[in-house]
Design a protein around this nucleic acid. Structure first.
Length: 581
RNA sequence: GCGCCGGUAGUGUAGCGGUUAUCACUGAGCGUUGCCAACGCUUAAACUCGGGUUCGAGUCCCGACCGGCGCACCA
């Protein structure tokens, strides 16, 4: 019996959701095309994400290039750290992690450069563990796709490995856009690229994939959230650090988890709640969803707390689909350093503060001629000193390891009293990061059902139905004349026109028996089928069939578009759409 | 990247040196058809790619590509 992944992928391929990319030329691992239905489905998922994070949370979307310049990824650590040092055996061509080969010789091999690793391997005559052959030069296999910008190949560019950096790099502009007020956030939905060594698992591990990320900049001293009360009662399936040690997850209200310190703070708890609501709304089963906290050794060293949303898949087990991290001020600091630009927000105090400030004024007229090139360094060292260190007759300093003596009268200092109206701070960043492709696959898997449908006196047969939420279903309604006859086709076309005017994606199908057409639509998840029959000509009503229950109601042909629209988008129930048949 | 296994119409498959590659479902067309994969007729559609062995290769051999599993890797 085929497993669910195969069933889902088979359907997805056959009906135009997912195709292997470049199939015509044999295909390439790690790349997938979204077919007509898949692209629409994915777009609807993205739009629900927009509804939640952009429209309702107010984190505007931006669009940065998918190619980034080298500085960005030096700052982010991707140039240096997003790679593995590899060495290949000259004899058998097997590739090995160079740092793994020397870990018995060296204490911290992962801190060495490729050249240093090559030296260590040569000096210690490390041989191929497989065949004993000589090992080649160590090289860094970076997981970023590299390219060059402009002719000549001088300027390096990289396809972005995450969309996040675009938001960090635009930080100074974003601060102004949001008129210097924290918290604020920016979002981006777009492609990211990672040159995976060996991508497998279909659409779970891609070389080109879609991320939806929010970077929310908050005041590091205040990690509460004004909307927390609204979501505090939501119960989540939490798989905390302690839970993982014990091997069990707990269902708990978010407010309780924050109170107990399991979730680091309100803001993170709030993001978990919105993430939960998003995933369930697009069609992920709540019982196949959990939030797993990163273990301390798994979390990036700078992160304060990090939770992954994981979805259970039959073949792949628990799959990470969202990462929600408190990245503190790491990214902004890194870009501030690389760009030599302050990336801060000025926060005014409620009331100006009186502060005593201690000011040191080195006399550069004396220091300059005396110390020449060192004068600058000496001056800044002096400015960092405390009053008692300046009190003696001579001041002793050490500059670049060299002791230096300064005469008392070359430095003056004083204490001044000033009013300070605010301060500049480096915001902390809360980052919810979504893998849209994994989510799209997961909701297909969770929506996929095979049912034994049995009519009286007939053989058992399988009905495949995709129970997608109506809001994400690519085709939202099918219009079906009961028979292929002109007098039924005409009103059907009328209905199609009206539905399209209302923005509903509708398919018209008059080929084959009505049963076959219902099944075709069940398979692609069309939630409602509208059938035109001879009563339509008599009294202007049509039947609406519900995909999941196969039940029907009769409703007026006039106003059908609004009727369907309300069921898809406004939570109107199927029973209220018309009279039971 | 390594090892093992596999790759035949849109989908699922049969064929494992010898005419025109099997079957089912699906798709399209016509007829029929009064609500859940009806029926009849017609029709479309495949040996992953490249080399080799052979009089002759889906079939045997080698390589590449793709997929599955295991190892390694996994911000």
């Amino acid at each position: 019996m085929a497993d669910k992944y195969e069933q889902v992928i088979e359907l997805a391929k056959r009906r135009g959701f997912l195709w292997n990319s470049f199939e015509l030329y044999g295909g390439t691992a790690g790349f997938y095309d979204y077919g007509p239905l898949g692209a629409m489905l994915k777009r609807r998922v993205e739009n629900i994400w927009r509804d939640i994070f952009v429209i309702n949370e107010g984190y505007y979307e931006i669009e940065a290039p998918t190619i980034g310049i080298e500085d960005i990824f030096i700052a982010s650590g991707h140039v240096g750290g997003f790679s593995d040092p590899l060495t290949e055996c000259q004899k058998c061509n097997e590739a090995f992690r160079a740092d793994h080969l020397v870990k018995d010789i060296m204490d911290n091999p992962d801190t060495l450069s490729a050249d240093e690793l090559t030296d260590v391997i040569n000096k210690n005559s490390v041989k191929c563990p497989e065949c004993g052959g000589k090992l080649g030069k160590v090289y860094e296999f970076n997981l970023m796709f590299k390219t060059s910008i402009g002719p000549g190949g001088k300027r390096a560019g990289y396809l972005r490995p995450e969309t996040a950096q675009g938001m960090f790099v635009d930080f100074p502009r974003l601060v102004k856009f949001y008129r210097d007020r924290l918290p604020f956030g920016a979002t981006q939905i777009g492609k990211a690229y990672r040159n995976e060594i060996s991508p497998r698992q279909g659409v779970i591990r891609l070389r080109e994939f879609t991320q939806a990320e929010a970077e929310i900049f908050i005041d590091p001293r205040d990690k509460t959230h004004p909307g927390f009360r609204e979501i505090g009662d939501i119960i989540l399936n939490l798989y905390s650090r302690e839970g993982q040690d014990a091997g069990e997850s707990t269902r708990m209200q978010i407010k309780e988890a924050v109170e107990k310190g399991i979730i680091a703070h309100e803001f993170l708890g709030y993001c978990l709640a919105r993430t939960y609501q998003f995933l369930v709304r697009v069609g992920v089963s709540p019982d196949k969803l959990r939030f797993r906290q990163h273990m301390s050794d798994e979390m990036a060293h700078y992160a304060a707390d990090c939770w992954d949303a994981e979805i259970e898949s039959e073949r792949f087990g628990w799959v990470e689909v969202v990462g929600i991290a408190d990245r503190t001020d790491y990214d902004l600091k890194a870009h501030a350093k690389q760009s030599e630009t302050e990336l801060t927000v000025y926060i005014p105090y409620d009331k100006p503060k009186k502060v005593e400030r201690f000011i040191v004024k080195p006399n550069m007229g004396i220091l300059g001629p005396k110390f020449k090139g060192k004068a600058g360094k000496i001056a800044s060292a002096l400015k960092a000193l405390k009053p008692q260190e300046l009190a003696g007759d001579v001041i002793r300093l050490e500059i670049d390891g060299e002791p230096i003596t300064i005469e008392k009268d070359t430095v003056t200092y004083e204490s001044v009293s000033e009013e300070v109206h605010g301060e500049t701070i480096i915001p902390h960043v809360i980052e919810p990061s979504f893998g849209i492709d994994r989510i799209t696959y997961s909701l297909l898997e969770h929506s996929y059902y095979e049912e034994e449908a049995k009519e009286e006196g007939e053989d058992e047969e399988t009905r495949i139905v995709l129970r997608l939420p109506p809001e994400v279903a690519p085709v939202q309604a099918a219009v079906l004349p009961l028979l292929t006859r002109e007098e039924l086709i005409k009103p059907a076309n009328e209905i199609v026109k009206n539905l399209r005017k209302a923005g509903i994606l509708v398919s018209f199908d008059d080929s084959g028996t009505i049963g076959r057409r219902y099944r075709r639509n069940d398979e692609i998840g069309t939630p409602y089928s509208i059938t035109v029959d001879y009563d339509t000509l008599k009294d202007g009503t049509v039947t609406i069939r519900d995909r999941d229950t196969m039940k029907q109601v009769r409703a007026a042909m006039s106003g059908i578009a609004e009727n369907i629209y309300d069921m898809i988008y406004r939570g109107k129930s199927f029973e209220d759409a018309g009279k039971k048949v």
